[in-house]
Design a binder for these strands. Structure first.
Length: 281
DNA sequence: CTTTCAGCCTGGGCGC
DNA sequence: TGCGCCCAGGCTGAAA
């Protein structure tokens, strides 16, 4: 569950749930992952959890050192919190339950805290974990589109005259960090721009609409706690509801929300793109 | 520099 | 039930 709004949701919820907990032990279960000198973190306090780009960052302060633990969920990574006192499992993406056995399969790292256990579960094993000493060392390749420095002028400069297709460009994390396949399609629909257009062909008005759509769609998705594709229903009804607002993503063959045309699916850079050929002409 | 494409992994869904 | 495909919210590195 990994684009900016989903990661933002997870980071906020985990922060609310686990901030202040003291770390006792880190157990790495996947040989692909390693956390060098993690023993030095014993006793470190989880100050807060924030989002950086598409990653979740745990800010830990120990008796001797400060460390930032950066978790990238990639395609299938999820975080679970097993609360000691409540004996419940929090998933941060739509439900709370006491289901037994969650995370037994595909659990890659267990972070044992005094008040509970954080599980990093990742079936496809694309996710990464990185321990760094300062915010400067965090892996944040490009600009955060929700920040105040993501202005229209900065966006114009960033776009330049690239010959790349705009949809493909929006996925470039070294330019804007946080957009993924769902929101790139949704943003282009919102701004009425054909995903096949090249960056250099966009006129001033289109760039302005695009900038505004990026801000608007992300704000709205964060407000609805992101998009959740899950088998289980939310027991709270308040988290991960943006799937109900998607206008084109995953809707190939369906009628467009704004006209009579049918939503198309095309493949660009080996990723599906969904769009309305009439609204995005 | 660009674009394409296999690869990293596992699992779910669908047609036969 | 089973097999073979295709698909999946991400990204890298090699090749062309």
């Amino acid at each position: 569950m990994p684009e900016l709004p989903e990661v933002e949701t997870v980071a906020r919820r985990l922060n609310d749930t686990a901030a202040g907990a003291a770390l006792e032990k880190i157990i790495v279960l996947d040989k692909k992952l390693s956390i060098p000198d993690r023993k030095n973190l014993r006793g470190a306090v989880l100050r807060r959890v924030v989002r950086a780009g598409k990653t979740v960052v745990l800010e830990l302060s120990g008796p001797e050192s400060q460390r930032l633990l950066q978790i990238h969920l990639r395609m299938s990574g999820r975080l679970f919190w097993i609360d000691k006192a409540e004996n419940t499992i929090h998933t941060f993406d739509g439900y709370v339950s006491n289901v037994k056995g969650v995370g037994r399969k595909h659990c890659r790292v267990r972070f044992l805290f005094d008040s509970g256990t954080l599980l990093f579960v990742d079936p496809r094993r694309f996710g990464t974990v990185k321990l760094v000493r300062s915010a400067q060392e965090l892996d944040i390749p490009g600009l955060d589109p929700t920040g105040s420095d993501f202005t229209l002028a900065v966006f114009r400069k960033l776009l330049g005259e690239s010959a790349q297709k705009i949809k493909v460009w929006l996925l470039r994390q070294d330019r804007i960090t946080g957009l993924g396949n769902i929101y790139a399609s949704e943003i282009l629909f919102d701004s009425g721009i054909d995903p096949e257009r090249t960056v250099g062909s966009l006129n001033s008005a289109e760039i302005k609409r695009l900038h505004s759509s990026i801000r608007k769609i992300l704000r709205n998705a964060i407000k609805h706690c992101g998009t959740t594709f899950s088998d289980f229903q939310s027991s709270e009804g308040s988290l991960g509801e943006y799937q109900n607002y998607l206008k084109v993503y995953g809707r190939a063959g369906e009628k467009c929300a704004d006209c009579d045309a049918k939503i198309l699916r095309v493949v660009q850079a080996q990723r599906s793109t969904f769009y309305c050929p009439q609204c995005q002409a």
